[in-house]
Amino acid sequence: RHVRAFLDANQERYRLTPEDRLTQTFDQTFDLSVFDLFMAWENGARVCSMDPIELLSPFKYLERNEITVWFSVPSVAAVLRRRGVLRPGTMPTLRWSLFCGEALPRETAEAWQAAAPRSVVENLYGPTELTIACTVHRWDPVSGPAGCVHDNVPIGRSYPGLHPLVIGEDGTPVADGQVGELCMAGPQTTPGYWRAPELTTERFFPYEGRTYYRTG
């Protein structure tokens, strides 16, 4: 049911069709691979598995396979930018560009948007305990740079149906604008760790009828 909640949120957001073609840049032992596989299966779309060497210069691969949905960790895009190969207009087939698993630097988002001008760029965030991803931020080429924090793209707002809570060191909620630890409750939250009750007690806590996970 946790994966079902994750898929439902993404189905509504991205509205993929049988015409879409998704990359598969993740090993299948990495939870982010669930998005590529299950979103494609649910919509009759195609998953195009890439050889790792093609990540160093994916442009011909994307064009040849008419890829419309890119999903990777930000460091893949960052390497392309540093190598000087992420040039404007080099990925015209993309309509969605999704990044997760690491911080997304502003310079990387800007360079990727220029290289994929028809694509919507989004930054996702989420630990495994919250089922793959739980927040998302849509990059805006005009206003986006001003909203960056420490020169990184924000992690955005929580998925529909999830309940974010920011707590202080004393474990109580902080006021808006104050620094604290992000916690999350909702249908994507795992109930705890397998055969690890002490760790479960450390990372999960009840609050106002919900079980929250402490993201750290």
Rank of each mutant, 00 (worst) to 15 (best):
R1P: 14
R1H: 11
H2G: 02
R4F: 08
A5M: 06
A5L: 07
F6Q: 03
D8H: 01
Y14C: 04
D20T: 06
D20A: 01
R21F: 06
T23W: 09
T23I: 06
D27V: 01
D27H: 12
Q28H: 05
L32C: 07
S33M: 01
S33P: 09
D36R: 01
L37P: 05
F38K: 08
M39L: 15
A40H: 03
E42T: 04
E42W: 02
A45E: 12
A45N: 12
R46V: 15
V47Q: 03
C48T: 09
S49T: 14
D51G: 03
P52H: 15
E54K: 02
L55R: 10
L56K: 14
L56P: 05
S57V: 01
S57F: 03
F59D: 05
K60N: 15
L62D: 08
N65Y: 15
E66Y: 01
E66H: 05
V69M: 07
V69F: 10
W70H: 07
W70L: 05
F71H: 13
S72W: 06
V73Q: 05
S75R: 14
L80R: 04
R82G: 11
G84H: 04
G84I: 04
G84Q: 05
V85S: 15
L86I: 11
L86Y: 10
G89C: 07
T90N: 11
T90D: 04
M91V: 08
P92C: 10
P92N: 10
L94Q: 09
R95I: 01
R95K: 11
R95Y: 04
W96S: 02
L98A: 02
G101V: 03
E102F: 07
A103I: 09
E107F: 08
A109K: 00
A109G: 01
A115N: 12
A115G: 10
A116P: 08
R118F: 12
S119K: 06
S119T: 12
V121W: 11
N123Q: 15
Y125W: 15
Y125L: 10
G126N: 13
T128I: 14
L130C: 15
L130I: 15
T131R: 11
T131K: 08
A133C: 11
T135K: 07
V136R: 05
W139M: 11
G144S: 12
A146M: 10
A146S: 13
V149I: 15
D151R: 14
N152E: 10
N152P: 05
P154F: 01
I155P: 04
R157K: 05
R157N: 09
Y159P: 07
Y159G: 11
P160D: 06
L165D: 04
I167K: 00
G168W: 02
G168R: 00
G168S: 00
E169D: 07
E169P: 00
D170L: 00
G171T: 02
P173M: 00
P173G: 00
V174P: 09
A175F: 05
D176E: 03
D176N: 00
G177K: 12
G177Q: 07
Q178N: 06
V179I: 14
E181S: 08
C183H: 02
M184F: 09
A185H: 04
G186F: 10
T190G: 09
G192D: 07
Y193T: 02
W194L: 14
W194N: 12
P197S: 13
L199H: 08
L199N: 04
T200S: 13
T201P: 04
T201Q: 14
T201H: 12
E202K: 13
F204Q: 07
F204P: 08
F205N: 12
Y207W: 08
G209W: 03
Y213A: 03
G216Y: 02
G216H: 03
